[in-house]
Amino acid sequence: MDVHDFDRPAGIALVVLALLTLPLVLLRGRRKDVPEGAAPERPGLLRRHPRTVRTLLVAVVLGVGAVGWSVSSALTHPGDASTAARLADWAREHHLGAVVDQVKQAKAGALP
């Protein structure tokens, strides 16, 4: 099985799912099935710094939500432009023209 056998929406969904579950894994303390004699259980990050962690998580969720809302509205505009063209236009409108140019140059250099 090749990496390119996966369709893009499913791959993007897996990446988003992994990114959303990563904070939950990092916030947990030690697993309960640790054998006897192991190091004592250490409280998770959420128990040590609850207000800071929750504030950061809320900020990240709001930021990702705002960017997602903006990108989705740019992708659903009527017209015949491709998804790549719409994303490039969105990025340029949000002062990311240098990133678009770098990606374009890298893609042009990678083509035979």
Rank of each mutant, 00 (worst) to 15 (best):
G68I: 01
H95C: 00
V64G: 12
P50S: 07
S70N: 12
A84R: 15
G44H: 10
P40F: 02
E93A: 15
P50W: 04
V58I: 12
D33E: 04
V103T: 01
G63R: 09
A85I: 00
H94D: 08
H77F: 02
D80I: 07
R47V: 02
G97S: 13
A66K: 05
V34C: 13
A81T: 01
A66L: 14
G68A: 08
E36V: 06
S72C: 02
H94V: 05
G37N: 07
A98I: 00
P78D: 11
L87A: 04
V103E: 00
A98D: 08
L46S: 04
R47C: 03
P35R: 13
S72L: 07
T76N: 12
T55D: 12
A74W: 08
W90I: 03
R48H: 01
A84G: 15
D101N: 10
S82M: 02
A85L: 01
R92E: 08
S70R: 12
D89T: 09
V58A: 08
G68C: 04
S72D: 05
T83R: 12
L56F: 01
V34H: 14
L57D: 05
L46A: 11
V67G: 03
R31S: 14
R51N: 06
P78S: 14
V34L: 15
P43Q: 01
K32A: 13
R92G: 03
P78V: 11
V99H: 00
G37S: 08
S82Y: 07
L56M: 01
R48L: 08
V60F: 05
G44D: 09
A38R: 10
D33V: 02
R54K: 11
D80S: 15
L46F: 10
A88S: 14
W69G: 01
R54G: 01
T83N: 06
S73K: 09
V67P: 07
L87M: 10
